[in-house]
Amino acid sequence: MGAAELADEVGFEKVSVSALARRFGVKDASLYSHVRGLEELRTRLALHAGGELIDEIAEAVAGRAGKDALVAFAGAYRAYALRHPGRYAATQIRIDQALIADSAALRRTAEITYGMLRAYGLREPDLTDAVRLLRSTFHGYCVLESTGGFGADRSVQASWDKAVDALHLALTHWPRETNGHD
Rank of each mutant, 00 (worst) to 15 (best):
S103Q: 11
S103G: 11
A104M: 07
A105K: 08
A105F: 06
A105S: 15
R107D: 01
R107G: 09
R108F: 06
T109P: 04
I112K: 03
I112V: 15
T113V: 13
M116Q: 03
M116Y: 02
A119H: 12
Y120Q: 04
Y120V: 00
Y120G: 03
L122H: 05
L122I: 09
E124H: 00
E124G: 01
P125F: 09
P125D: 03
P125E: 01
D126E: 03
D126N: 05
L127H: 05
T128C: 04
A130C: 00
V131Y: 04
V131Q: 03
V131G: 05
L133Y: 06
L133I: 12
L133E: 03
L134I: 11
L134E: 02
T137D: 04
T137M: 14
F138C: 08
F138M: 09
H139W: 11
Y141R: 09
Y141W: 15
C142Y: 04
V143F: 11
V143A: 04
E145Q: 13
T147K: 06
F150I: 10
G151E: 13
S155W: 08
V156T: 13
V156Y: 09
V156K: 03
V156L: 01
V156Q: 04
S159T: 08
D161M: 01
K162A: 15
A163C: 15
V164A: 12
D165C: 06
D165G: 11
L167C: 01
L169F: 14
L169E: 03
A170S: 13
L171T: 04
L171K: 01
L171W: 04
L171D: 07
L171I: 00
H173L: 13
H173G: 07
P175Y: 01
R176D: 04
